[in-house]
Amino acid sequence: MNFKAICEDPQELDENYPAMVQGVYYDSKGSKIMGIMHVAQGLGPHATIILLHGFPGYEQNFDLAHVLLRSGYNVLIFHYRGSWGSQGDYSINHALEDVESSIDFLKSSFARERYRVDSKKIILIGHSLGGFSAFMTAANHPEIKLVGCIAGFNFGLYGKKLCNDKFLIEKAMKEWGEAVVFLNGLTVRNFIENIIENRDKWNLLNISEGLKNHFLLMVGGKKDAIAPLEDHYRPLAKVLEEKDIDVREVILDGDHSFSAKRIVLAKEVLSWLHEQKIN
């Protein structure tokens, strides 16, 4: 596996079909969401990764996007409704719908022609809420074969833990309070209530059947205090293993954003993609 894309620019440039980064806007349930399209050099069409950020999106993984771009992948990063300039109101339900809208956008004739997208090779990779959203979405998309979950947060299992525990609910509202400030149409109370209400629907353990016939990547952090391994990573990894689902498991000595492990994170993602020989 050649890891030069992590730290080196391409040696040969395609002057006719250069790499480019462009802002994109498309509809999701009547609201315009803002995205950034990274288009790999070459005529293509190119396998295209939807790189999903977390809640509220402080770490947006643009470093990883450029590594993937130099490796020959298109990468779409978008902002869920109600966040970072996208129209509408924020909610986890809306975030999941926005992933669906992004898939539809990449399958459109406009995206295929303008951004050289191979609509038959769409890949989902997400961080935190994005990892949760990637697995939730993939369970309903058998055609999307490659799905990565980086420091994934299992909102359903979390909601089950909070249910009927007033002390934990109050603690959770304090912990999530500052992040909610930046999201349109969302209060910390309705955020927590929504998680509890959807605890069965959003429990990744309950959708594992839908992840069969996918090739999965799971990355966890030993120092992750937001999505601890014991609460979010290991229960899901155990269920996937019991169902004999193809999953590459990686545990790094990192925090929730892998702040000190960005290079090794990029290596693990590239290695997994290379093994699947999709590009």
Rank of each mutant, 00 (worst) to 15 (best):
K145S: 03
I50G: 04
K160A: 09
E242H: 14
Q41L: 01
G156D: 07
S102W: 02
H94P: 00
V21S: 10
A266D: 10
L76Q: 11
S109D: 15
I123H: 06
G85F: 07
E193Y: 11
V39N: 01
D253R: 09
Y73M: 12
R70F: 07
H94G: 13
I33A: 02
Y25Q: 14
K4G: 04
L157E: 14
F62N: 14
K32M: 06
G57R: 11
G88L: 04
E59T: 15
P45G: 12
N203D: 07
G82D: 06
A237Q: 11
L129A: 00
H127P: 08
G23P: 13
E113L: 11
Y90P: 01
N279V: 12
K166Y: 12
W272F: 09
G82N: 02
H256K: 03
R70P: 04
G35T: 02
D118R: 11
N74Y: 02
N206L: 07
S108M: 10
K160R: 13
A227D: 04
H46L: 02
Q11R: 12
Q41T: 08
H66R: 15
I245W: 03
H232I: 04
V39E: 06
N213Q: 01
L146E: 12
S28M: 06
R112D: 03
G254I: 07
N61K: 13
S101W: 01
E143L: 07
R114L: 11
T137D: 04
V21H: 11
I278C: 10
K238H: 15
I251S: 09
G30A: 05
N140F: 09
A179P: 07
L68F: 00
L162D: 08
L211Y: 02
P18Q: 09
H141N: 10
L216W: 12
F132V: 09
A139C: 06
S83D: 05
N190D: 03
E275N: 10
L183W: 02
D104V: 07
Y26S: 08
K267I: 09
V188D: 03
Y26R: 03
G185A: 13
T48D: 00
P235V: 03
E97W: 09
S109T: 14
H66F: 15
V21C: 13
K223Y: 10
I77E: 14
V147Q: 03
D98V: 01
S31V: 11
Y26E: 09
N154I: 09
I103K: 03
K277D: 07
E241S: 15
E268S: 06
S91G: 03
K4P: 08
S133D: 06
S109N: 14
V75H: 05
K161I: 08
G88V: 01
V269E: 06
